Simulated scan of single mutants.
Amino acid sequence: MSKLKISVVLLFCLFACKPRNKQKNSKFTVVTTTTMITDLLQNIGGEAIEVKGIMGPGVDPHLYKASEGDVAKLTQADLIVYNGLHLEGKLVDVFEKMNQIGRETVALGGLLTEKQIINSEAFVSAHDPHIWFSIDNWKKITKELIVFLSKLNPQNKAVYQKNG
Rank of each mutant, 00 (worst) to 15 (best):
K162M: 11
I146K: 04
S120E: 11
F148W: 05
A158L: 06
L152A: 07
K22T: 13
E88R: 00
G109T: 04
V31D: 08
M1V: 13
R103W: 05
S150H: 07
V8Y: 12
I80V: 13
I117S: 03
L11F: 15
K65H: 13
N163G: 10
R103D: 09
N163E: 04
G56P: 02
L74D: 10
G56F: 04
Q76H: 12
R20F: 13
V94I: 15
L85R: 08
L112N: 02
R20P: 00
L4W: 10
K3W: 01
G84R: 04
L79S: 07
V147Y: 01
N163P: 01
Y64R: 05
L91Y: 08
K18F: 12
N119A: 11
V30L: 01
G45R: 02
V30M: 09
H62K: 08
A126T: 06
D93V: 07
E104A: 14
G89P: 00
N21R: 06
L63C: 10
K27Q: 14
Q161M: 10
N119V: 11
L87N: 03
E68R: 05
L149Q: 05
I141W: 06
G102S: 07
K65F: 08
C17S: 15
P154D: 10
G102L: 06
E121I: 02
K157S: 14
T75G: 00
W138M: 05
K143W: 00
L4R: 15
K140C: 00
E114D: 15
G110A: 05
F28P: 06
L11T: 14
M36H: 08
Q23D: 13
E144C: 01
V81L: 03
G102N: 05
N163L: 01
K97S: 13
G102F: 06
K3S: 14
K65L: 08
A66R: 06
G102I: 04
L91H: 05
V9T: 12
L85Q: 09
V8M: 09
H62R: 11
H130N: 08
L74W: 03
K22D: 14
K24H: 09
E144A: 12
I141P: 03
T32S: 10
V81N: 07
W138P: 03
K140D: 11
C13P: 02
K90V: 04
F28G: 13
D93L: 04
E121W: 02
L10K: 06
E50T: 14
D93N: 09
K18C: 14
A107R: 00
I49P: 01
L41M: 15
K27P: 08
G69Q: 10
K157E: 14
E114S: 12
K115N: 14
K157G: 01
Y82H: 08
E47K: 15
D136W: 00
G56R: 00
